[in-house]
Design a binder for these strands. Structure first.
Lengths: 245, 245
DNA sequence: GTGATTGAACATCAACGATGTTCGAAACTC
DNA sequence: GAGTTTCGAACATCGTTGATGTTCAATCAC
């Protein structure tokens, strides 16, 4: 586990911690801890005060992108590979934000497709591709996450019709449907689903037991769910093809 | 001058050249030349054939972004600084594509502004800023240049009204007006000019003697031109404030 | 078939980023 | 205000990465 993540969790669990405590915990020097706290403060994870830092992570929010991106890399890669396998050459795809979908983007780099990613991370991953047609949606990128949201994003999506939408989420169950942490994100996901003929959700197993604040869509609006372990049997009952990668 | 640029110009001037010739010219090994030719071919600068490469640069087109970006860095920086000085805190700015405007973007990173850049390079330069409101236009990024174009871009721009447009170009004179190499780019620039109350052109002196294919707007539609050396006196006569950085 | 050309694999080296250390300045405590 | 703690700038160090060169087997053109 990276030191940044270790610090984030220690501070979250304790509420606040001193620089010396963190140095002892991680084995790094105090100067390094200060530098780490500076970057975490810039990401909005915590707040500096003289001598230490106080956590800013709320219960209902998710950890910032930079910390999630190297979590469960094998599961993400497996899920992403399965999703990429479901997409046929020539399709037009709208690709949601999030770390799992970013992995999908990387796998699509050399395919012959039309892709509209909903986060700048994925845009950057794809902008050097010669083989695919890249469409950038307008919008306001949320700091860190770089997910595009707002009226410009909604307008960009609804101006187009896609073969497939690849959607990530923060929670999914047959009962609660697809949920997200961020209200604006939820609106974007909803628009993506509405503009696509086929909807694939890419969801690691930890999300199958969780529900987040913002409701996006009922499980029945999904055509397939790709996940990394057996989960909610209710999904299959709701008519969703469950693919275990 | 970088070796890539040296190779590009040598091949352009000769039409085509052998790997051995280029190795002798640059002093690098043949393997390195082959690797260079590979990247230049990927940028569309030239075409490989067994034993050498043939130039693909047309007279009327411009060299790719990667090669222009480290050309005349001081002039660009001076121009960019002057442009940044013309922008007041709180303004909303639409920022054109191109290497000079990218330099402007870097200088705006910590300002309190609303900025819509028209190229992904500038978007990336600004996406880590906490102080400014970043708006991403939709569109199709042109390979290499990463300038956004097409109907989504035009729609994004015309949905908004800016205080200031910062426009780069490929040619500018009182007689021929503002011109660009790419037709789609020209349409985007025109839309940006139409959506802004004030228009500033950021143009290094070499462009003041040049005219490109696509007409964008007459010189009279500009409020100010920032350049790095004295040029066309006709501009001032046309009512444009000429700032020499 | 023969010689030139290519690209993969490995070696080398310089550049860069990350970390630790030191020390003067600033900020808290009393 | 004196003393102590914390901070961050500056420099040193080290590991990693990217660029370049070399070798050699495979491939291509004639």
């Amino acid at each position: 586990m990276s030191r940044l993540k270790q610090i984030t969790e220690a501070v979250r669990d304790a509420g606040s911690l001193g620089v010396a405590d963190l140095a002892a915990l991680t084995g790094a020097s105090e100067m390094t801890i200060r530098r780490d706290l500076e970057v975490l403060a810039a990401q909005g994870v915590l707040e500096r005060f003289r001598g230490g830092a106080r956590s800013l992570l709320l219960r209902g929010s998710e950890p910032p992108f930079a910390l999630r991106s190297d979590e469960n890399p094998d599961a993400k890669r497996r899920i992403a590979a399965a999703v990429a396998g479901l997409i046929a050459d020539g399709e037009s795809v709208v690709l949601d934000s999030g770390t799992t979908c970013l992995e999908v983007a990387r796998l699509l780099h050399d395919r012959r497709l039309t892709v509209m990613p909903l986060s700048l991370h994925a845009v950057n991953a794809l902008s050097s591709s010669a083989s695919l047609t890249l469409l950038v949606p307008g919008g306001r990128p949320r700091p860190g996450e770089l997910a595009l949201t707002g009226p410009l994003t909604l307008a960009s999506i609804s101006a187009l019709r896609f073969d497939t939408a690849v959607i990530g989420c923060c929670g999914l169950s047959a009962a609660q449907g697809l949920t997200a942490f961020d209200l604006e994100d939820a609106a974007v996901k909803r628009a993506a689903i509405a503009s696509a003929r086929r909807v694939i959700a890419a969801v690691d197993a930890s999300k199958l037991t969780r529900t987040a604040l913002a409701f996006v869509a009922p499980a029945s609006s999904l055509d397939a769910v790709v996940t990394d372990a057996d989960g909610d049997e209710g999904l299959a009952a709701a008519g969703v093809a469950v693919v275990t990668a």
